[in-house]
């Protein structure tokens, strides 16, 4: 397009009319924006998809029911949980990861508490939280029984706000 026709088309009598040049320029901008969005979305999807699968294992058999004395806490490093047998004989599998910021909690037998070394969160043997950094109890795994054996389903983690009696499993 030479200069003359350009000025003519830009200063047309009807201002509503979009000149061919303006239209092409506008379309180019819109297409560039679209391409940028597409590239961004493709990049996000490219990076995201890798690991959406779970971090947990399957069902673990941990031992005979009688092997655990009431009031005991046993750590299972492979399963990432503590098996707690509460005083009245019920079982809980308490996930070792602190619900605060993900550190591994430790069982301190002397104080009968779980302690997180990262931000001093502490939990009672039921996993209930006791001080300010955290806002929820330790997560648990489902415990069930087969032929007098204690089994823990580590494929699914159960989150909870507070401890409740329903979180404890009993051998019927």
């Amino acid at each position: 397009m030479n200069k003359k026709s350009q000025t003519k088309s830009n200063t047309g009598d009807e201002p509503d009319n979009i000149s061919r040049r303006n239209f092409l320029q506008g379309s180019l901008k819109a297409l560039t924006a679209l391409a940028a969005i597409e590239l961004g979305a493709a990049g996000l999807l490219f990076l995201r998809a890798r690991s959406l699968d779970g971090e947990y294992g399957g069902i673990m058999t941990v031992g005979k029911v009688e092997d655990f004395t009431p009031g005991s806490v046993v750590e299972y490093e492979d399963g990432n949980f503590f098996l707690v047998r509460v005083e009245d004989g019920g079982f809980m599998a308490v996930y070792r990861r602190c619900p605060h910021l993900g550190c591994t909690v430790q069982w301190v037998a002397k104080k009968q508490k779980f302690f997180c070394p990262c931000h001093a969160a502490s939990f009672d043997p039921y996993g209930e939280f006791e001080n300010q950094p955290v806002a929820r109890a330790l997560d648990t795994f489902k415990v069930f029984f087969e032929d007098d054996m204690v089994k823990v389903d580590t494929s699914q983690m159960r989150t909870r706000e507070h401890h409740s009696a329903q979180d404890i499993s009993y051998q019927s």
Partner: peptide
């Protein structure tokens, strides 16, 4: 499987870690 005790962040984030307590 084992957080060191104490588990501290890099020193320049320790002010924030203290707030987190």
């Amino acid at each position: 499987f084992n957080s060191p005790n104490p588990a501290k962040a890099a020193w320049y984030f320790l002010g924030l870690q203290e707030l987190l307590l």
